[in-house]
Computed example of a mutant assay.
Amino acid sequence: IPSSSSHALVGGLVGATVAKAGSGAPIVWEGFGKILAFIIISPLVGVIIGGLLMVLVAWIFRNQSPYQAGKWFKGGQLFAAAAYSLGHGGNDAQKTIGIIWLLLITAGVATKDQSTLPMWVVYSCYFAIAWGTYLGGWRIVKTMGTKITKLNSISGSCASMGGAITLGLATLGGIPVSTTHTITGAIIGVGAATDVKAVRWAITANLLVAWVLTIPASGLIAALFWYIGTKFL
């Protein structure tokens, strides 16, 4: 199940904080509420942009056969995937950096001044997310590429570019969103633009349930590990 690593990270942070501080935990609801809101907003934006790109491509290549149009997207698919990967790192890696920075601040070895953040933290997070992408989770790849809707070079390019644009807009706005949610929304958008029946809505419903459960589940696990840590460390 492709779940959100971003929301798992946020849920873990909040769960550990509440476990330590109790009901009076210093949660900044303005920021946390924004993350919760974009659980709904980011996939919807992905659906809209992905669907619009698919319609635009269909109109541009309306006088060509699918085979002829597909030739243009063999290289375009690599470009779109690269754009999405940059958007992924530009949004996701920053969250991990932020968590480590928070730990350094609480340990007293850094401050809120950005210049006190060691560059080894930045580069290690970039390397880790790039290496994890390279290693790949092929069952996730199969779910995203074949189980939500069948993708080809054209629809895959539109979905990747739709996700890239959505992530780019969120990153420019300083909004931490789920890359999983955005690309899933874009895939649903291109599938629905082709044929609403082409989307496997039952699979989509399972993904939605996983998205809703990610933050509370990770929060509970983080709280559990907090209690274990206080007993044995």
Rank of each mutant, 00 (worst) to 15 (best):
L117N: 06
G70I: 00
F225I: 14
I1K: 15
Y67K: 14
I48D: 03
K142Q: 08
Q114R: 02
G98C: 03
I27N: 00
G132F: 03
G70V: 02
P2H: 03
A21M: 11
L36H: 00
W201I: 10
N91M: 15
W29D: 04
V196C: 09
L102P: 10
I188A: 08
M161L: 07
L224I: 15
V141A: 02
T180F: 01
K71E: 11
L103D: 13
A202K: 12
F73H: 02
H88G: 05
G136H: 05
Y84T: 15
I165N: 08
A210M: 13
S4H: 11
L220N: 01
L103S: 14
G87Q: 08
T116F: 01
P43I: 05
L44E: 00
V196E: 10
S42R: 02
V190W: 06
I39E: 13
S155H: 00
R62P: 09
L9V: 12
T116L: 06
T116W: 09
I48K: 07
K112I: 13
W29A: 06
G173M: 04
S178T: 03
L167F: 04
L102K: 13
L44Y: 00
N63C: 08
A223F: 05
A186K: 01
V10A: 12
G51D: 01
L135N: 14
A81C: 10
E30A: 13
A37N: 13
G136F: 03
F38T: 04
V199W: 09
G173Q: 06
F232L: 14
S6R: 13
A107M: 15
I99L: 14
A58V: 01
L53F: 07
F225N: 13
V212R: 04
G145P: 01
T111L: 03
S5P: 02
V212H: 02
T149G: 07
G189I: 08
V47E: 07
G89E: 08
Y227P: 12
V14Q: 00
K112W: 11
V109K: 10
V14A: 02
I48C: 03
P66L: 05
S6C: 14
E30S: 13
L104C: 01
I140R: 04
G145I: 06
G162M: 02
A198C: 03
A37G: 13
V212T: 01
T166G: 08
I215D: 01
V122C: 07
A170W: 03
I1N: 15
P43H: 07
G132M: 03
G12V: 05
